[in-house]
Simulated assay, not measured.
Amino acid sequence: MKWTSISAIYFLFWTFSAFVLLPFGVRTSEEAGEERIPGQADSAPHRFDLSRHLLRTTVVATALFALYYLNWTFGWIGTDAFDFYHPN
């Protein structure tokens, strides 16, 4: 696999992981026991820690990409595994 393909697929895994992990570890102002700013949405996070989120995203994306790359290298699950119309 070319390095350009590797980096593009890793970027896709990273972006997917970033969006999936957004709601985890975030508390609202009400849950944190703080007052809300006037006009703030009820669901707005109290304090969003970007560096922590980026670290979590990178760890999850790297693990998922490693599994993907190992499967691509060793062929554990191929396209035949998803052929539900013509099973062998």
Rank of each mutant, 00 (worst) to 15 (best):
P38D: 15
G25P: 04
R52Y: 08
D83T: 14
L70N: 14
W76H: 14
F48Y: 05
T58S: 15
H46A: 05
S29Y: 00
N71M: 11
T4L: 07
T57C: 05
L12K: 01
G75W: 04
M1K: 10
V60R: 01
A61E: 02
W14E: 07
W3Y: 08
G33P: 02
V20A: 13
D49M: 02
Y68N: 12
T58D: 11
V59Q: 03
Y85S: 13
G75Y: 00
P45Y: 06
D80W: 09
F84E: 11
T58A: 11
T58I: 07
G78D: 13
Y10S: 01
F11R: 04
E30N: 12
P38H: 07
H46Q: 01
Y10M: 04
F84Y: 09
Y68S: 06
M1D: 12
P38R: 06
Q40M: 01
D83E: 12
G75N: 14
V60Q: 01
D83P: 05
I37H: 09
L12A: 06
P38Y: 05
W14C: 06
W76S: 14
L70H: 12
F16S: 08
S43F: 07
P87H: 10
V20W: 04
G78R: 12
P23D: 12
T79E: 15
Y69E: 11
V60A: 07
R36E: 06
S43P: 07
L50T: 12
W76G: 15
D83Y: 13
W14M: 03
G25T: 03
F16C: 12
G25W: 04
K2W: 06
Q40I: 02
A8R: 03
Q40D: 11
Y68M: 04
T58G: 08
F82Y: 11
